[in-house]
Design a protein around this nucleic acid. Sequence first.
DNA 1: CCTACCGATCGGTAGG
DNA 2: CCTACCGATCGGTAGG
Lengths: 196, 196
Amino acid sequence: MARIKTTQDISRKEVITEAAATLFKEKGYKAASMRDLAEQVGVEAASLYNHIKSKSELLHNICVQVANDFWEHIHEVENKKCTGVEKVEAILRYHIREMITNYEKVYVSDREWKHLTEPYLSNFHTQRREYRKKVASIIEQGIHKGEIKPIDAPTAVLIILHAVSGIDSWHRSKQKISAAELEANMVTILIDGLRK
Amino acid sequence: MARIKTTQDISRKEVITEAAATLFKEKGYKAASMRDLAEQVGVEAASLYNHIKSKSELLHNICVQVANDFWEHIHEVENKKCTGVEKVEAILRYHIREMITNYEKVYVSDREWKHLTEPYLSNFHTQRREYRKKVASIIEQGIHKGEIKPIDAPTAVLIILHAVSGIDSWHRSKQKISAAELEANMVTILIDGLRK
DNA sequence: CCTACCGATCGGTAGG
DNA sequence: CCTACCGATCGGTAGG
Protein backbone atom coordinates (compact mmCIF):
# COMPACT_ATOMS: atom_id res chain seq x y z
CA MET A 1 0.00 0.00 0.00
CA ALA A 2 1.23 3.48 -0.85
CA ARG A 3 2.46 5.41 2.14
CA ILE A 4 2.20 9.15 2.60
CA LYS A 5 5.59 10.75 3.07
CA THR A 6 6.01 12.53 6.38
CA THR A 7 8.78 14.86 7.56
CA GLN A 8 10.18 11.88 9.47
CA ASP A 9 10.45 9.96 6.22
CA ILE A 10 12.40 12.72 4.55
CA SER A 11 14.89 13.15 7.38
CA ARG A 12 15.28 9.36 7.63
CA LYS A 13 16.03 9.30 3.93
CA GLU A 14 18.61 12.04 4.39
CA VAL A 15 20.26 10.05 7.21
CA ILE A 16 20.48 7.03 4.90
CA THR A 17 21.89 9.16 2.07
CA GLU A 18 24.57 10.66 4.34
CA ALA A 19 25.56 7.19 5.55
CA ALA A 20 25.63 5.96 1.94
CA ALA A 21 27.94 8.81 0.93
CA THR A 22 30.39 7.88 3.69
CA LEU A 23 30.22 4.20 2.79
CA PHE A 24 30.54 4.76 -0.96
CA LYS A 25 33.54 6.98 -0.33
CA GLU A 26 35.27 4.41 1.87
CA LYS A 27 34.59 1.23 -0.08
CA GLY A 28 33.56 2.45 -3.51
CA TYR A 29 29.99 2.17 -4.82
CA LYS A 30 30.20 -1.41 -6.05
CA ALA A 31 32.02 -2.79 -3.00
CA ALA A 32 29.60 -1.16 -0.56
CA SER A 33 26.68 -3.49 0.10
CA MET A 34 23.19 -2.57 1.23
CA ARG A 35 23.79 -4.84 4.24
CA ASP A 36 26.82 -2.67 5.14
CA LEU A 37 24.67 0.42 4.82
CA ALA A 38 21.84 -1.05 6.90
CA GLU A 39 24.30 -1.86 9.66
CA GLN A 40 25.55 1.73 9.68
CA VAL A 41 22.01 3.03 9.92
CA GLY A 42 21.04 0.44 12.54
CA VAL A 43 18.32 -1.51 10.72
CA GLU A 44 17.98 -4.68 8.64
CA ALA A 45 18.80 -4.37 4.93
CA ALA A 46 15.20 -4.90 3.86
CA SER A 47 14.04 -1.98 6.00
CA LEU A 48 16.05 0.49 3.96
CA TYR A 49 13.61 -0.02 1.11
CA ASN A 50 10.82 1.64 3.08
CA HIS A 51 12.73 4.90 2.59
CA ILE A 52 14.58 4.51 -0.69
CA LYS A 53 13.82 2.93 -4.03
CA SER A 54 17.19 1.39 -4.80
CA LYS A 55 20.94 1.53 -4.24
CA SER A 56 21.38 3.39 -7.50
CA GLU A 57 18.88 6.04 -6.36
CA LEU A 58 21.21 6.84 -3.47
CA LEU A 59 24.17 7.42 -5.78
CA HIS A 60 21.98 9.44 -8.11
CA ASN A 61 20.72 11.70 -5.31
CA ILE A 62 24.26 12.34 -4.10
CA CYS A 63 25.55 13.21 -7.57
CA VAL A 64 22.59 15.45 -8.46
CA GLN A 65 22.83 17.34 -5.19
CA VAL A 66 26.52 18.07 -5.69
CA ALA A 67 26.16 18.86 -9.38
CA ASN A 68 23.38 21.38 -8.69
CA ASP A 69 25.41 23.18 -6.04
CA PHE A 70 28.41 23.58 -8.36
CA TRP A 71 26.21 24.48 -11.31
CA GLU A 72 24.50 27.23 -9.37
CA HIS A 73 27.79 28.61 -8.12
CA ILE A 74 29.44 28.85 -11.50
CA HIS A 75 26.49 30.80 -12.83
CA GLU A 76 26.93 33.34 -10.04
CA VAL A 77 30.62 33.62 -10.87
CA GLU A 78 29.94 34.08 -14.57
CA ASN A 79 27.74 37.08 -13.82
CA LYS A 80 30.20 38.73 -11.47
CA LYS A 81 31.89 41.95 -12.49
CA CYS A 82 35.53 41.11 -11.90
CA THR A 83 38.67 39.96 -13.72
CA GLY A 84 39.14 36.50 -15.18
CA VAL A 85 41.77 35.62 -12.61
CA GLU A 86 39.41 36.63 -9.82
CA LYS A 87 36.71 34.42 -11.32
CA VAL A 88 39.04 31.44 -11.50
CA GLU A 89 40.10 32.09 -7.92
CA ALA A 90 36.46 32.22 -6.80
CA ILE A 91 35.79 28.87 -8.51
CA LEU A 92 38.92 27.32 -7.00
CA ARG A 93 38.03 28.55 -3.50
CA TYR A 94 34.51 27.17 -3.85
CA HIS A 95 35.84 23.77 -4.89
CA ILE A 96 38.24 23.71 -1.96
CA ARG A 97 35.56 24.66 0.57
CA GLU A 98 33.06 22.14 -0.78
CA MET A 99 35.73 19.45 -0.68
CA ILE A 100 36.37 20.35 2.97
CA THR A 101 32.85 20.83 4.32
CA ASN A 102 30.82 18.52 2.08
CA TYR A 103 33.64 15.99 1.75
CA GLU A 104 31.90 12.61 1.38
CA LYS A 105 29.28 13.64 -1.15
CA VAL A 106 31.67 15.71 -3.27
CA TYR A 107 34.18 12.86 -3.28
CA VAL A 108 31.57 10.26 -4.26
CA SER A 109 30.12 12.50 -6.95
CA ASP A 110 33.62 12.99 -8.37
CA ARG A 111 34.87 9.40 -8.23
CA GLU A 112 31.85 7.12 -8.39
CA TRP A 113 29.56 8.84 -10.91
CA LYS A 114 30.53 6.31 -13.57
CA HIS A 115 28.29 3.80 -11.78
CA LEU A 116 25.23 5.94 -12.42
CA THR A 117 22.57 4.29 -14.59
CA GLU A 118 21.13 5.72 -17.79
CA PRO A 119 19.79 8.25 -18.50
CA TYR A 120 21.36 9.88 -15.42
CA LEU A 121 24.83 8.79 -16.46
CA SER A 122 24.64 10.65 -19.78
CA ASN A 123 23.07 13.71 -18.16
CA PHE A 124 25.75 13.88 -15.51
CA HIS A 125 28.54 13.36 -18.02
CA THR A 126 27.21 16.13 -20.24
CA GLN A 127 26.77 18.58 -17.37
CA ARG A 128 30.31 17.82 -16.19
CA ARG A 129 31.71 18.58 -19.62
CA GLU A 130 29.69 21.79 -19.84
CA TYR A 131 30.97 22.86 -16.45
CA ARG A 132 34.57 22.38 -17.54
CA LYS A 133 33.91 24.26 -20.75
CA LYS A 134 32.62 27.20 -18.72
CA VAL A 135 35.78 27.26 -16.61
CA ALA A 136 37.95 26.95 -19.72
CA SER A 137 36.09 29.82 -21.30
CA ILE A 138 36.71 32.06 -18.28
CA ILE A 139 40.41 31.20 -18.45
CA GLU A 140 40.50 31.94 -22.17
CA GLN A 141 39.00 35.37 -21.55
CA GLY A 142 41.70 35.98 -18.97
CA ILE A 143 44.37 35.01 -21.49
CA HIS A 144 42.83 37.29 -24.09
CA LYS A 145 42.93 40.23 -21.68
CA GLY A 146 46.54 39.49 -20.79
CA GLU A 147 45.87 38.62 -17.12
CA ILE A 148 46.69 34.95 -17.60
CA LYS A 149 49.65 33.28 -19.29
CA PRO A 150 49.09 32.00 -22.85
CA ILE A 151 48.52 28.40 -21.78
CA ASP A 152 46.13 25.70 -23.03
CA ALA A 153 42.91 26.47 -21.15
CA PRO A 154 41.53 22.89 -20.96
CA THR A 155 44.85 21.76 -19.46
CA ALA A 156 44.64 24.49 -16.85
CA VAL A 157 41.10 23.39 -15.96
CA LEU A 158 42.21 19.79 -15.64
CA ILE A 159 45.02 20.75 -13.28
CA ILE A 160 42.93 23.01 -11.06
CA LEU A 161 39.95 20.69 -10.70
CA HIS A 162 42.01 17.57 -10.12
CA ALA A 163 44.39 19.26 -7.70
CA VAL A 164 41.41 19.92 -5.43
CA SER A 165 40.57 16.23 -5.24
CA GLY A 166 43.90 15.83 -3.43
CA ILE A 167 42.18 17.29 -0.37
CA ASP A 168 41.25 13.67 0.26
CA SER A 169 44.85 13.16 1.44
CA TRP A 170 44.59 16.24 3.66
CA HIS A 171 41.52 14.81 5.40
CA ARG A 172 43.40 11.60 6.09
CA SER A 173 46.63 13.21 7.26
CA LYS A 174 47.59 13.09 10.92
CA GLN A 175 49.12 16.52 11.37
CA LYS A 176 46.65 18.68 9.55
CA ILE A 177 47.26 22.32 8.78
CA SER A 178 44.05 24.35 9.21
CA ALA A 179 41.44 24.52 6.47
CA ALA A 180 42.23 28.23 5.98
CA GLU A 181 45.94 27.50 5.57
CA LEU A 182 45.21 24.69 3.13
CA GLU A 183 43.05 27.01 1.05
CA ALA A 184 45.64 29.80 1.12
CA ASN A 185 48.43 27.44 0.04
CA MET A 186 46.45 25.95 -2.81
CA VAL A 187 45.40 29.35 -4.10
CA THR A 188 48.98 30.65 -3.92
CA ILE A 189 50.42 27.78 -5.92
CA LEU A 190 47.68 27.43 -8.52
CA ILE A 191 46.69 31.05 -9.14
CA ASP A 192 50.31 32.22 -9.25
CA GLY A 193 50.91 29.43 -11.73
CA LEU A 194 48.27 30.92 -14.02
CA ARG A 195 49.00 34.62 -13.56
CA LYS A 196 51.18 36.33 -16.13
CA MET B 1 49.35 -31.71 -11.56
CA ALA B 2 51.92 -28.98 -11.30
CA ARG B 3 52.84 -27.42 -14.62
CA ILE B 4 56.23 -26.06 -15.58
CA LYS B 5 56.07 -22.41 -16.58
CA THR B 6 57.13 -21.73 -20.14
CA THR B 7 57.83 -18.44 -21.91
CA GLN B 8 54.39 -18.81 -23.49
CA ASP B 9 52.87 -18.90 -20.03
CA ILE B 10 54.56 -15.71 -18.96
CA SER B 11 53.53 -13.77 -22.04
CA ARG B 12 49.98 -15.11 -21.78
CA LYS B 13 49.93 -13.91 -18.20
CA GLU B 14 51.12 -10.49 -19.31
CA VAL B 15 48.35 -10.33 -21.93
CA ILE B 16 45.79 -11.11 -19.22
CA THR B 17 47.30 -8.50 -16.89
CA GLU B 18 47.19 -5.82 -19.59
CA ALA B 19 43.56 -6.63 -20.35
CA ALA B 20 42.79 -6.58 -16.63
CA ALA B 21 44.35 -3.11 -16.28
CA THR B 22 42.16 -1.77 -19.07
CA LEU B 23 39.05 -3.40 -17.63
CA PHE B 24 39.75 -2.30 -14.04
CA LYS B 25 40.29 1.24 -15.28
CA GLU B 26 37.04 1.31 -17.23
CA LYS B 27 34.71 -0.40 -14.76
CA GLY B 28 36.55 -0.26 -11.46
CA TYR B 29 38.07 -3.34 -9.81
CA LYS B 30 34.91 -4.55 -8.07
CA ALA B 31 32.59 -4.00 -11.02
CA ALA B 32 34.91 -5.80 -13.45
CA SER B 33 34.13 -9.52 -13.47
CA MET B 34 36.42 -12.37 -14.41
CA ARG B 35 33.85 -13.29 -17.08
CA ASP B 36 34.30 -9.79 -18.56
CA LEU B 37 38.04 -10.29 -18.52
CA ALA B 38 37.83 -13.76 -20.07
CA GLU B 39 35.75 -12.36 -22.93
CA GLN B 40 38.35 -9.66 -23.59
CA VAL B 41 41.09 -12.27 -23.69
CA GLY B 42 39.01 -14.66 -25.79
CA VAL B 43 38.70 -17.66 -23.45
CA GLU B 44 36.25 -19.02 -20.89
CA ALA B 45 36.48 -17.60 -17.37
CA ALA B 46 37.74 -20.87 -15.88
CA SER B 47 40.65 -20.93 -18.33
CA LEU B 48 42.13 -17.74 -16.88
CA TYR B 49 43.04 -19.72 -13.78
CA ASN B 50 45.60 -21.75 -15.71
CA HIS B 51 47.66 -18.55 -15.90
CA ILE B 52 46.78 -16.58 -12.78
CA LYS B 53 46.03 -17.45 -9.19
CA SER B 54 43.19 -15.02 -8.51
CA LYS B 55 41.57 -11.73 -9.43
CA SER B 56 43.32 -10.02 -6.55
CA GLU B 57 46.71 -11.25 -7.83
CA LEU B 58 46.08 -9.28 -11.03
CA LEU B 59 45.46 -6.06 -9.11
CA HIS B 60 48.46 -6.75 -6.93
CA ASN B 61 50.78 -7.31 -9.91
CA ILE B 62 49.62 -4.06 -11.52
CA CYS B 63 50.14 -2.03 -8.36
CA VAL B 64 53.54 -3.51 -7.54
CA GLN B 65 54.81 -2.98 -11.07
CA VAL B 66 53.81 0.69 -11.05
CA ALA B 67 55.02 1.28 -7.51
CA ASN B 68 58.46 -0.18 -8.32
CA ASP B 69 58.88 2.02 -11.39
CA PHE B 70 58.09 5.19 -9.45
CA TRP B 71 60.17 4.10 -6.48
CA GLU B 72 63.20 3.47 -8.66
CA HIS B 73 62.82 6.81 -10.41
CA ILE B 74 62.60 8.91 -7.27
CA HIS B 75 65.81 7.35 -5.99
CA GLU B 76 67.57 8.43 -9.16
CA VAL B 77 66.23 11.95 -8.73
CA GLU B 78 67.29 12.13 -5.10
CA ASN B 79 70.88 11.37 -6.09
CA LYS B 80 71.00 13.93 -8.88
CA LYS B 81 73.17 16.99 -8.51
CA CYS B 82 70.71 19.76 -9.30
CA THR B 83 68.43 22.31 -7.65
CA GLY B 84 65.29 21.44 -5.73
CA VAL B 85 63.08 22.98 -8.38
CA GLU B 86 64.77 20.90 -11.05
CA LYS B 87 64.20 17.76 -8.99
CA VAL B 88 60.51 18.54 -8.56
CA GLU B 89 60.27 19.22 -12.27
CA ALA B 90 61.93 15.87 -13.06
CA ILE B 91 59.44 14.08 -10.81
CA LEU B 92 56.50 15.92 -12.34
CA ARG B 93 57.66 15.15 -15.89
CA TYR B 94 58.08 11.48 -15.02
CA HIS B 95 54.56 11.31 -13.59
CA ILE B 96 53.14 12.97 -16.69
CA ARG B 97 54.94 10.63 -19.06
CA GLU B 98 53.98 7.52 -17.11
CA MET B 99 50.37 8.69 -17.05
CA ILE B 100 50.54 9.08 -20.83
CA THR B 101 52.44 5.97 -21.89
CA ASN B 102 51.51 3.52 -19.15
CA TYR B 103 48.04 4.95 -18.69
CA GLU B 104 45.88 1.99 -17.67
CA LYS B 105 48.21 0.50 -15.09
CA VAL B 106 49.16 3.84 -13.54
CA TYR B 107 45.49 4.82 -13.35
CA VAL B 108 44.48 1.53 -11.73
CA SER B 109 47.36 1.65 -9.29
CA ASP B 110 46.32 5.18 -8.29
CA ARG B 111 42.57 4.70 -8.01
CA GLU B 112 41.95 1.03 -7.21
CA TRP B 113 44.74 0.14 -4.78
CA LYS B 114 42.30 0.30 -1.87
CA HIS B 115 40.95 -3.07 -3.03
CA LEU B 116 44.31 -4.73 -2.44
CA THR B 117 44.24 -7.49 0.18
CA GLU B 118 46.47 -7.65 3.24
CA PRO B 119 49.40 -7.61 3.69
CA TYR B 120 49.84 -5.99 0.26
CA LEU B 121 47.38 -3.22 1.13
CA SER B 122 49.43 -2.06 4.12
CA ASN B 123 52.70 -2.36 2.21
CA PHE B 124 51.38 -0.33 -0.67
CA HIS B 125 49.89 2.30 1.62
CA THR B 126 53.16 2.69 3.50
CA GLN B 127 55.25 2.93 0.34
CA ARG B 128 52.87 5.54 -1.04
CA ARG B 129 53.21 7.64 2.09
CA GLU B 130 57.01 7.30 2.01
CA TYR B 131 57.06 8.38 -1.62
CA ARG B 132 55.11 11.52 -0.82
CA LYS B 133 57.37 12.26 2.11
CA LYS B 134 60.36 12.10 -0.20
CA VAL B 135 58.79 14.59 -2.60
CA ALA B 136 57.81 16.87 0.29
CA SER B 137 61.35 16.72 1.60
CA ILE B 138 62.76 17.79 -1.77
CA ILE B 139 60.34 20.71 -1.83
CA GLU B 140 61.29 21.70 1.70
CA GLN B 141 64.97 21.78 0.72
CA GLY B 142 64.02 24.06 -2.19
CA ILE B 143 62.18 26.36 0.20
CA HIS B 144 65.16 26.40 2.54
CA LYS B 145 67.48 27.40 -0.30
CA GLY B 146 65.10 30.15 -1.39
CA GLU B 147 64.28 28.60 -4.77
CA ILE B 148 60.71 27.79 -3.83
CA LYS B 149 58.03 29.95 -2.18
CA PRO B 150 57.48 29.43 1.56
CA ILE B 151 54.47 27.16 1.12
CA ASP B 152 53.30 24.08 3.00
CA ALA B 153 55.27 21.27 1.33
CA PRO B 154 52.71 18.45 1.84
CA THR B 155 50.05 20.65 0.22
CA ALA B 156 52.31 21.27 -2.76
CA VAL B 157 52.87 17.52 -3.12
CA LEU B 158 49.15 16.86 -3.00
CA ILE B 159 48.50 19.42 -5.72
CA ILE B 160 51.23 18.23 -8.05
CA LEU B 161 50.52 14.52 -7.79
CA HIS B 162 46.76 14.86 -8.08
CA ALA B 163 46.94 17.35 -10.94
CA VAL B 164 48.67 14.66 -12.99
CA SER B 165 45.76 12.26 -12.53
CA GLY B 166 43.72 14.76 -14.54
CA ILE B 167 45.50 13.42 -17.63
CA ASP B 168 42.67 10.90 -17.60
CA SER B 169 40.47 13.69 -19.02
CA TRP B 170 43.10 14.47 -21.64
CA HIS B 171 43.06 10.85 -22.84
CA ARG B 172 39.30 11.00 -23.23
CA SER B 173 39.14 14.42 -24.92
CA LYS B 174 38.26 14.61 -28.62
CA GLN B 175 40.56 17.41 -29.70
CA LYS B 176 43.76 16.45 -27.99
CA ILE B 177 46.77 18.70 -27.85
CA SER B 178 49.99 16.69 -28.30
CA ALA B 179 51.60 14.87 -25.39
CA ALA B 180 54.56 17.26 -25.57
CA GLU B 181 52.27 20.30 -25.39
CA LEU B 182 50.36 18.79 -22.49
CA GLU B 183 53.59 18.22 -20.59
CA ALA B 184 54.86 21.73 -21.34
CA ASN B 185 51.60 23.32 -20.18
CA MET B 186 51.47 21.34 -16.96
CA VAL B 187 55.06 22.12 -16.11
CA THR B 188 54.57 25.82 -16.84
CA ILE B 189 51.56 26.15 -14.56
CA LEU B 190 52.75 23.98 -11.70
CA ILE B 191 56.46 24.78 -11.55
CA ASP B 192 55.85 28.51 -11.97
CA GLY B 193 53.35 28.21 -9.14
CA LEU B 194 56.08 26.86 -6.88
CA ARG B 195 58.96 29.06 -7.97
CA LYS B 196 59.74 32.11 -5.90
C1' DC C 1 10.55 -2.22 10.97
C1' DC C 2 11.34 -7.48 10.78
C1' DT C 3 11.71 -12.55 9.01
C1' DA C 4 12.07 -15.24 5.21
C1' DC C 5 13.47 -15.79 0.88
C1' DC C 6 14.40 -15.31 -4.40
C1' DG C 7 16.97 -15.08 -8.75
C1' DA C 8 21.26 -13.37 -10.49
C1' DT C 9 25.92 -13.08 -10.40
C1' DC C 10 30.22 -13.50 -8.40
C1' DG C 11 35.22 -15.77 -7.81
C1' DG C 12 36.89 -19.99 -8.11
C1' DT C 13 37.44 -25.50 -8.42
C1' DA C 14 37.05 -30.40 -10.30
C1' DG C 15 37.90 -33.16 -13.82
C1' DG C 16 39.06 -34.13 -18.25
C1' DC D 1 41.53 -24.83 -22.86
C1' DC D 2 36.60 -26.45 -21.98
C1' DT D 3 32.06 -28.06 -19.50
C1' DA D 4 29.89 -28.36 -15.40
C1' DC D 5 29.16 -26.74 -11.17
C1' DC D 6 29.66 -24.87 -6.10
C1' DG D 7 29.09 -21.87 -2.12
C1' DA D 8 28.83 -17.04 -1.06
C1' DT D 9 26.95 -12.79 -1.62
C1' DC D 10 24.46 -9.49 -3.92
C1' DG D 11 20.11 -6.12 -4.62
C1' DG D 12 15.63 -6.43 -3.85
C1' DT D 13 10.53 -8.33 -2.76
C1' DA D 14 6.55 -10.53 -0.18
C1' DG D 15 4.04 -10.44 3.59
C1' DG D 16 3.04 -9.18 8.00
